[in-house]
Design a binder for these strands. Structure first.
Length: 490
RNA sequence: GGCCCCGUCGUCCAGCGGUUAGGACACAGCCCUUUCAAGGCUGAGACCGGAGUUCGAUUCUCCGCGGGGCUACCA
């Protein structure tokens, strides 16, 4: 399909964090570049200089890094088309403007903002719409000279030609509009800084971008940019506008919907691969019914043609499910690397876990045992309590529901004695022994299992009882059985 | 208001003139089972409405309705 190696870009404004919508746009660009052996460029659009500190950029970079979306050119990665901050590319915009003004494709406008606002509001009050009336296009050379000597603030406006403008969009098809619906938009502000339309087009041309993949909120503005490409005598890139992401109330995703920054998901215990998988499914499909994708599978399956045109709603349930799927796909070793920070925070990390050896292997076994019932990384902390803490506390509900059995104390003592003498402390032996004890005591095995579960974990639910006991070990298990014995004595 | 885009189960997607409208999440039931999960099976659940075009429309066209975007010296 692509007859040249694609060059795509993600061009966020530095807002301090990476929004999930932006993350998905970045992901689509990244996938496309990786799929076709292209180049993924990160460009920071910080022309709105008011607040564009390096701190603001940091959040974006960290978000992309966490997701594993590495860029080939951009901040911290030199390339042939730098710099990659728009605030450092001002000369390029000025050159473009000079060209446009000198060829008559753009012109200076000395109208004051207040004046424009008044006209606009007046027109709207009268029930109509208003477009810039080209007052300054009609200025005489003398009037212009007068403004210049007075140093009237001036902006540069693009002179929108008559006619129609159309472009092909990979996801929307051909879009065609009448230029009369456009006004002579501003290219350069009165302080000399470029507006979005100018900087984005100049940069995309300069960086030889072949495919512009961005949010649907830019579709309506694309005709203006198409006009600029033509005015600058450049070939059009291919456009692909991806549908926006909405919250569960069908409103555009915002802070009100809870976590909207990818870092929120990082701290909540989501896996980057699960997030990437989930985001990829929002507005894109491989064409078949596959839902769970590894990163590599995604790269292989991705195409811009697979992007669909309807809106997408962010479904936390499905994300959580996918997270569980990806956790189950991972090796215990890989999971340990991801949960270390959570275990540390909970105070249950042990230095011996850090290096290869018995303890780390043991932790791996715990992880494998818990894996199937986990949705979030931090669940390992919660579900792993019985393995990590020294003393267990009994869930009150478990006590009333499972421990009010006459004679239970005797059974527990019998089990503890049997376990103390066991040759092999493995799950099979443990189960056989427990069942034998139950039979000898003439009770159902379930009664003793429930009690034992509470003794070792404090809870009614959890992993397979005997696998759990095996990992907790004879010493701690017998201690806990003894604790239960004392508890039952009261 | 004007311009543009979108409209299949509650949600995410498949469908690209003829299908019992398919899959996934969530939901319900069953199986498995010491519990909870995981896993398996089953069930319920959708083509926004109206005109056309056609032998035949979820699919193509138009109108309406609904939703969204843009309409700034924000991006």
């Amino acid at each position: 399909m692509a007859n040249q190696s694609p060059r795509v870009r993600f061009a966020p404004s530095p807002t301090g964090f990476l929004h999930v919508g932006g993350a998905r746009t970045a992901l689509f660009n990244w996938l496309y570049a990786r799929r076709y052996g292209g180049v993924f460029i990160l460009r920071i659009e910080d022309t709105d200089n008011d607040r564009s500190s390096s701190d603001m950029v940091k959040g974006i970079l960290e978000g992309l890094q966490w997701l594993g979306l590495d860029w080939d050119e951009g901040p911290n990665v030199d390339g042939p088309h730098g710099p990659y901050f728009q605030s450092q590319r001002l000369t390029k915009y000025r050159l473009a403007i000079e060209k446009l003004v000198s060829t008559g494709l753009a012109y200076y406008c000395y109208c004051l903002p207040d004046e424009l606002k008044r006209k606009r509001e007046a027109a709207q009050a009268a029930g109509g719409s208003w477009r810039y009336d080209r007052t300054c296009l009609a200025l005489t050379p003398e009037a212009i000279a007068a403004h210049e000597t007075k140093k009237t603030p001036r902006v540069v406006r693009f002179k929108v030609p008559r006619g129609r403008t159309s472009f092909k969009d990979v996801v929307r098809g051909t879009i065609d509009i009448d230029n009369q619906t456009l006004e002579d938009f501003v290219l350069t502000r009165s302080d000399g800084s470029p507006t979005y339309h100018l900087s984005v087009v100049v940069d995309d041309i300069d960086m030889a971008i072949t495919d512009v993949v961005r949010g649907d909120d830019h579709t309506s503005n694309t005709p203006k940019q198409v006009l600029l490409y033509k005015a600058l005598d450049a070939d059009l890139p291919r456009f692909a506008h991806v549908p926006l992401i909405f919250g569960s109330d069908k409103k555009r995703l915002s802070k009100r919907h809870g976590a909207t920054s990818v870092s929120d998901y990082q701290f909540r215990g989501y896996l980057p691969d699960a997030m990437v998988n989930f985001l990829s499914l929002l507005g894109w499909s491989s064409g078949d019914d596959q839902e769970v994708f590894t990163r590599d599978a995604l790269v292989q399956a991705f195409s811009l043609e697979g992007i669909n045109s309807g809106k997408a709603i962010f479904d936390h349930d499905k994300l959580a499910w996918l997270n569980g799927q990806h956790i189950r796909l991972m090796s215990a070793e890989a999971i340990i690397n991801h949960i270390e920070s959570f275990l540390r925070k909970a105070g249950v990390w042990h230095d011996s876990y850090a290096t290869a050896g018995n303890k780390r292997a043991w932790l791996g076994c715990v992880v494998d045992l818990l894996k199937a019932r986990v949705r979030y990384l931090e669940d390992f902390v919660e579900y792993g309590q019985p393995f990590f803490v020294n003393t267990v506390t009994y869930d009150p509900e478990a006590v009333t529901k499972r421990l009010l059995v006459p004679g239970l104390r005797e059974y527990v003592v019998a089990l503890k004695n049997a376990y103390t003498q066991l040759d092999q402390f493995d799950s099979d032996s443990l189960e056989r022994t427990l069942r034998a004890v139950a039979e000898a005591q003439n009770i159902k095995a379930g009664i003793l299992m429930h009690a034992t579960r509470i003794a070792v974990s404090g809870r009614m639910v959890g992993p397979g009882l005997f696998e759990m006991i095996e990992l907790i070990g004879r010493e701690r298990t017998c201690e806990r059985l003894d604790e239960l014995r004392k508890f039952l004595a009261d």
